[in-house]
Design a protein around this nucleic acid. Sequence first.
DNA 1: GTGTTTGTTGACCAGGCGGTTAAGTTACGA
DNA 2: TCGTAACTTAACCGCCTGGTCAACAAACAC
Lengths: 204, 204
Amino acid sequence: MKKTTRIQTENSQRVLDAALEVFAAHGFRGATVDQIASTAGMSKANILYYFRRKQDMYVAVLTKTIEDWLTPLKTLNPAGDPHEELWRYAQAKLQMSRDAPDASKLFANEVISGAPMIGAYLQNDLRPLVVHKCTIIQRWIDRGLLAPIDPLHLLFFIWSTTQHYADFMPQIDALYDHSEDKLFSDAESTLKQLLITGLQPPAR
Amino acid sequence: MKKTTRIQTENSQRVLDAALEVFAAHGFRGATVDQIASTAGMSKANILYYFRRKQDMYVAVLTKTIEDWLTPLKTLNPAGDPHEELWRYAQAKLQMSRDAPDASKLFANEVISGAPMIGAYLQNDLRPLVVHKCTIIQRWIDRGLLAPIDPLHLLFFIWSTTQHYADFMPQIDALYDHSEDKLFSDAESTLKQLLITGLQPPAR
DNA sequence: GTGTTTGTTGACCAGGCGGTTAAGTTACGA
DNA sequence: TCGTAACTTAACCGCCTGGTCAACAAACAC
C-alpha cells in the first residue's frame, strides 16, 4: 500500500534540506513556503505535494536535528576517564556546530521562541537522558575524579560555548581575522583549557 | 520645531516595550505589527503614527539593546586585578541575562538570521572596542597575571555562557527543578569556578 | 472659550501568505 | 506498448500582511 519511490525519497530530501536552511535563518513564523520552494528549486505546489503543511516540514527537520543532537551525549561512558569523556563530548558538539550550523540555529530559534513545538520532547526525552548523565558526572565527583561542580550547569557550559560557534557566526566573522580552520582549533584549545583545568579535582 | 510631548514619550516607550517582547520571541520577519499593537494595547494605526515602519521599531529597540550591551565591557579596567575584572564583567552579563532576557533574545535572533541590520555596527563599533579589550587581556597574560588564553575566545566564552541563561530558558526550565534564585546562583558559582580556576596562571 | 497642533482610529489597499484543485505530464510495471 | 499510478504546476482562494488616509477627538497655548 505505502511504497516510497525513488523520486519521493530524492525530492523529500531536497525539500528538507531547503527547509532546514530557511527555518534556521528565519524561524518557523519568519520562513515562507515560497522561499523554501525556491531554495529547493521546486514549485510551491510541488513541495506541498510532499509535505502538506509548512508545519510538517518544520517538525520533520526539527525531529531529525534533535536525534542527531542527542547521539554524542548518549555515548558518555561512566567507566571511562571523566576528563576524557567530557572533552570528547565537547569536541563532538563543537564539530557539529561546524559541520551543521543550520541545525544549531534551527534549534536555537525554536527554543528562543519558547519551544512551542518541542516543549513536550524536552520534558519526555531530553530530561530523563540529561538526568541520567548528570548522575554519572556526580558519581565521578563523589569518587574524587572531578572537581565539585553542578553537573547540569557543566552541560549548559558545554552546550552554550560550542553552539555559540554556529549560532553567532556573523558576529564572530566581524571580530575574527584568520581562517575558519584556525578559528575552530583556537576555540578547541580555549574550551579544553577552561574545561580541563576548571575541572581538575583538588589535590589530595 | 521638534518638540517631544509627554504623550509622545509615554506612548513611544509603550510601543518599544511591546516591540522588544514580540521581536525577541519571533524575530523581525516573524513578528507582526498587529501583534506589537495588541501587546502595547494600542491600535495598529496608532503605533504606526509613532513609528512609520515596522523596521523603525526594530532598529530603535535593537540600538537601545546594543548600547546597554556594551556598557559593562567598556568598564574593564586595565589597572585592576584581572580575575576580578573579568569576573565582574561575567557577573554583570549574567545579571543582564536575568533582568533583560528579551534583549538577549532579540540580539540572538538578529545574529542568527545573519545580522542583516547590525552587520555594519559589528564592524564599526563592536570590533574596535573588542580589539582594544583583547589587548588589555593580552597584556595581563604577558605580565603573568593570567593563564595564556586567546582573549577573543575568552570573551566568546563569557558571552555564550551568560546569554545561554536568557536565550535557552525554556530548555533550562525543562531540566532544572529549583527556584530561579537558585538557578542563577548555581550558574554564578559554576561560571566562577570555570573562569577563575581556568585562568589561574601557571605557578612560577 | 477658541484655534491649532497633536493624537487616534476605522476603513481601505495592494501584495504576500499558506494551502487547494483540476488538469496535465512523466515514470514505470506488465 | 500501453495503462495506471506517481508526479508537477498554473490558477485560484480566503486571509493576513505592512502601510495609508481622511475624518474625528483630545490636548494645549492664548
